[in-house]
């Protein structure tokens, strides 16, 4: 009677372990699949630390690659192209992490041009194309930015 109870207990424990393992595996597979399906639905080719590479950008890169070639991009070529896009995103994140936006003079100049360029587009929309007005608007913009900023000299 006792031996039979022990066997039943062992069976129950084994069953519990088995079912929880299956449950765990199914859960993991399900979350990965959900992510995968979600990604496809969102038109994603890949994500890198949460940053997205869209399928449309990937396909654009593939067609650029195919331009001037007789054959279509092979599977290997496509892997290489996605790999390059991922490399680019990793390098972009590297630059952001190391604040190269400020310390690299070329990158610094490019962002400053982009921000100022954005202002000029706004001015054109207002038909303020005269350089004198442009300067005034730019100065106003900087004044507003300064008003809301915390600026202090380093005393050390």
């Amino acid at each position: 009677m006792n031996a039979e109870t022990n066997t039943n207990n062992l069976k129950a424990v084994a069953f519990l372990v088995f079912t929880s393992t299956i449950g765990l595996i199914l859960g993991l597979v399900s979350s990965e699949t959900k992510f995968f399906v979600k990604g496809i639905e969102a038109g994603l080719a890949a994500t890198i630390n949460g940053s997205e590479i869209y399928k449309v950008d990937y396909e654009r890169a593939v067609s650029l690659f195919e331009k001037g070639r007789r054959d279509r991009a092979s599977l290997k070529d496509r892997q290489m192209i996605l790999g390059r896009l991922i490399d680019e995103e990793l390098l972009f994140q590297y630059a952001i992490d190391r604040d190269l936006l400020r310390s690299d003079m070329n990158a610094r100049r490019t962002i400053l041009q982009a921000v100022v360029g954005g202002l000029e587009v706004g001015e054109e929309a207002l038909n303020q194309t005269h350089s004198k007005y442009k300067l005034i608007i730019f100065q106003d913009y900087l004044t507003k930015l300064r008003e809301t900023a915390t600026i202090y000299l380093d005393e050390n």
Binding site: F36, G39, L44, A46, G50, K55, L75, Q79, L82, I86
Partner: peptide, 15 residues
């Protein structure tokens, strides 16, 4: 950088 990153590819053939 790739080894430390969380990279997920949605295209079946790609890695």
């Amino acid at each position: 950088l790739a080894s430390e990153a969380d990279i997920k590819t949605m295209i079946m053939s790609a890695s």
